[in-house]
Design a protein around this nucleic acid. Sequence first.
DNA 1: TTGTACGCGTTATCAC
DNA 2: GTGATAACGCGTACAA
Lengths: 331, 331
Amino acid sequence: MSPTLEQVAALAGVSRATVSRVVNGSPKVLPDTVAAVERAIVELGYVPNRAARALVTRRTDSVALVVPEPDSRVFSDPFFAGILRGVSAALAPTSSQLVLLIEPSAGDDQRLLRYLRGGHVDGAIIVSHHGRDNVLQELAQLPLPIVFSARPLGVEVPVASVDVDNVAGARTAVEYLLSKGRRKLGTVAGPVDMTAGIDRLTGYQLVMAEEGLPEAVAYGDFTADGGEQAALKLFDEHPDLDGLFVANDLMATAALRVISQLGRRVPQDVAVVGFDDSVVATTTTPKLTTVRQPVVQLGTRLAEILLAKINGADLTGPEIFSTELIIRGSA
Amino acid sequence: MSPTLEQVAALAGVSRATVSRVVNGSPKVLPDTVAAVERAIVELGYVPNRAARALVTRRTDSVALVVPEPDSRVFSDPFFAGILRGVSAALAPTSSQLVLLIEPSAGDDQRLLRYLRGGHVDGAIIVSHHGRDNVLQELAQLPLPIVFSARPLGVEVPVASVDVDNVAGARTAVEYLLSKGRRKLGTVAGPVDMTAGIDRLTGYQLVMAEEGLPEAVAYGDFTADGGEQAALKLFDEHPDLDGLFVANDLMATAALRVISQLGRRVPQDVAVVGFDDSVVATTTTPKLTTVRQPVVQLGTRLAEILLAKINGADLTGPEIFSTELIIRGSA
DNA sequence: TTGTACGCGTTATCAC
DNA sequence: GTGATAACGCGTACAA
């Protein structure tokens, strides 16, 4: 069994209370006493009992990363991986641990909400891309510090969130295509129940409207297969496209294949720009020109905001990061 | 503040002890009493306090997923994503939560070990691909239920582990190339400090030896860049290769590009087989023929074994899963 | 500055 | 079958 405060106190020749003060860095302990206690701590290999501490402080020193979608796609998503890295990096110097909460099956919302309400964690980061989930609204109203990655669709109450400027990112992509002299621009958009899908389409539409150019849109679901269907449909309806903005890299790889099967060359005949700058962006021929989002940074900020809220800060509203166009071979 | 056992007991007109029995499903409670208590629980929205419970039971109802490598690559690795899905699926019906432990920077081993020794979790799953880490040995000897994903290199004590049969998987790939009439086979191997790197190379070497064929090996580091270097070196030294086994998909995508830049066609001139069946396998042209490993299943089994060990089972030794060849366009 | 004593919410061991 | 009651390890008023 691991040693307790009591044993450390006995060895150091002081009381439990004093040891506790040393452990928690109280300023009013004599240097000599501190030294003695610390020696005892090292000698015994003392580690505070988290449960006992949590019981009295009502802090668990752990935060949750919630993925309220049974949709397994989230994991293979490089976005999620980046968020994870950022969050864990920000938490590292802290005493807080990261608890992963994944909704195993659709409709198991209550279990999740109960857990969060049960005081098992000090706060939660919600990583959800799909809107319309009525869970989001409930999550937002929990009496618990919460931060959303991406502004949650359909949630009316003010919440703290961190996101990338998808509209601006899409604009950059489309404007880049224009700068290359392309005028017949189409887009493979994402699902309209995700902010990323909506906003990136909006960015495209805004530029097209400003330029007085006609739109050409097909919808995919952010998967390779969906992207393929959408690209086929798009080129079927608009065979003369000379530029294409695809709402994410995975669909863009499919578009590349479709274009080549149609006997057209990238980027000579059709220039293609993706979004994400994920691993797949460099596995294609030619490599993808794409819009990079600072995912790790997003995760870091998410954790920082949450920790601040846990410590009483009153932060609400979105915090927006900008994107960067990464130019490779496809456009 | 959330309600306590005491309050539930008061409302139900019974004692704390009885409520506790109901909550924990003790068989010896009168049905009527159970009903009354359950009603009170629902009415109050009672949720057991984890800290208080952990304090007395000495069980935390949480297990750790440990990534003892500051190497950020792990996250973008589809392998990790699959493991995560499997583990969390297996944990879902349980009361156990998943705590993610990531070593923020090299050499911070002590912090990790202290945490694990501190009784904050009931057990741990170690996801480590690199060997040579002296942490692994220490982890293996912790007085805590532990399971390794992949047999830990350099660890002498017997441990529980779950892995895929990398040697057999590589054999399948190479034998498939042979069955296609290819005889000049090369391989882009992974790093020799990872079991996956070593074993996949071994599989290739075994088949070549059996067939009395000469080896052609170049080493990469499982990244696209590393794969490119290795492929260039390999074709420089062996320009006449007609078949290539690459130890992972990411490097295989780079090999595809190199081969095409060399003016040779895939699969007509050079047939290529990868390993992993990750997302990138379908983003290339042609799509990759590759060896799929059941990552989700691996994760599930990892969690199952850990839970069994926590409950007292004495499981040690490796558990091996088999792979499957997925035939696409590259071979 | 340090020690004493109580309470945090549960589970477990007794009696009844 | 059910109810007292003693731990579990720690933080913190309060007293000294």
